[in-house]
Design a protein around this nucleic acid. Structure first.
Length: 324
DNA sequence: AACCGTCACAACCGCATGCGA
DNA sequence: CTCGCATGCGGTTGTGACGGT
């Protein structure tokens, strides 16, 4: 199911991500943010290209990613949106919080494409049958009004396709019903939703167990102080017994986050094995200009909340570098 | 047991787009 | 306006799992 790791000419790893690589990426991004994807792997200690890191984070490791089977409602939404938008997977993904465009795209090609085609065929047949019935009824001098959502209940003699597609009846009967149904759907989009993935699940395993967090080089912690709607997180070298210096330790790294972001990291903390978040991952940041790091409180005026992203949280940008 | 075809999906690749210099 | 860089997007590929023969 996954690719065998390999190396290309430049020494960059390709293929399947290992748990250790995942751990490094998670640890780095959750602490330092994605300030520059191209430079990130170098400082995170990853022998990957930035593009690969970004893809891995966006499609797999990012919080709030919803894993597992698509629900019928999600599938109906995808079909409906694809009919409306075409192959604009990222636009479709907006309608399905927690699902990535890649995941939707894959699911479309493996499962929904056929259904949609069959669905189209059924609709065409239904229309043809309706018009045929109307014509027939009209010829006999009797008028029957078919409800808008009427289905052909017994079409076994009409089409080998439709006769085997009872599972799509909710789709074929009335797409607008499905549409309104989706509009009323309430997706869990709070910042703790991703814990469904990360928490221990005997059936699906535990990411944090799989990540093999043992043996990580740790450094000073990234301490999070949560407020009501503001969270301050800062390097707290003085509050910990660790003696190694953080790359950011020399400056007071604290920023005020104008959202609930702290809760997100709290959630990670709850989900980790011992000492993961109380002992931060050491990445080589010696070549990163200090202005790209999480700034001090004094620098916080440089930050401008730009937009709310899929997490429903305001991210902070320092110049054009996304810190979170 | 071995082979083969199909499926699912993570990951790669190339192009498009946005933005700053 | 042009160029270069970073990122986003969609198409495609590669690989393991799995079921059938």
């Amino acid at each position: 199911m996954v690719r065998t790791p390999s190396c290309d000419k430049s020494g960059m790893r390709k293929g399947t991500w290992t748990p250790e690589e995942d751990m490094k990426l998670i640890a780095y991004v959750t602490r330092y943010g994605c300030w520059n994807w191209r430079q990130l792997p170098k400082f995170a200690g990853l022998a990957r290209c930035g593009k690969s890191c970004r893809l891995r984070w966006m499609n797999y490791l990012r919080p709030n990613i919803k894993r597992g089977n698509f629900t019928q409602q999600e599938e109906e939404c995808i079909i409906r949106m694809h009919k409306k938008l075409g192959n604009r997977w990222s636009a479709i993904a907006v309608e399905l919080p927690g699902r990535t465009d890649n995941e939707i795209k894959n699911h479309w090609h493996t499962a929904l494409k056929k259904r949609s085609q069959q669905n189209t065929l059924i609709n065409e047949e239904t229309k043809a049958i309706k018009s045929k019935n109307k014509e027939s009824v009209h010829n006999n001098g009797v008028f029957v009004t078919l409800p808008a959502t009427s289905q052909i209940s017994d079409n076994s003699s009409l089409s080998p396709v439709s006769s085997t597609c009872s599972e799509f009846s909710s789709i074929t009967s009335d797409l607008s019903t499905a549409a309104s149904c989706m509009e009323n759907l309430v997706f869990e989009d709070d910042d703790l939703g991703f814990l469904d993935l990360y928490n221990i699940d005997p059936m699906n395993g535990n990411l944090w167990t799989e990540l093999n967090l043992d043996g990580i080089s740790f450094n000073t912690p990234c301490e999070i102080v949560s407020g009501d709607t503001n969270s301050t997180f800062q390097s707290s070298s003085s509050s910990n017994s660790n003696t190694l210096d953080s790359p950011h330790q020399s400056t007071s790294e604290s920023i005020v986050v104008n959202n609930d972001f702290g809760r997100f990291l709290d959630s990670y903390e709850e989900a980790t094995v011992d000492n993961f978040w109380t002992q931060s991952y050491v990445a080589d940041m010696s070549h990163v200009p200090s202005e790209l790091f999480v700034p001090s409180v004094a620098e916080s005026e440089y930050f401008t909340p730009l937009y709310d992203d899929l997490w429903g949280q305001t991210h902070l940008y320092h110049e054009n570098h996304c810190l979170f």
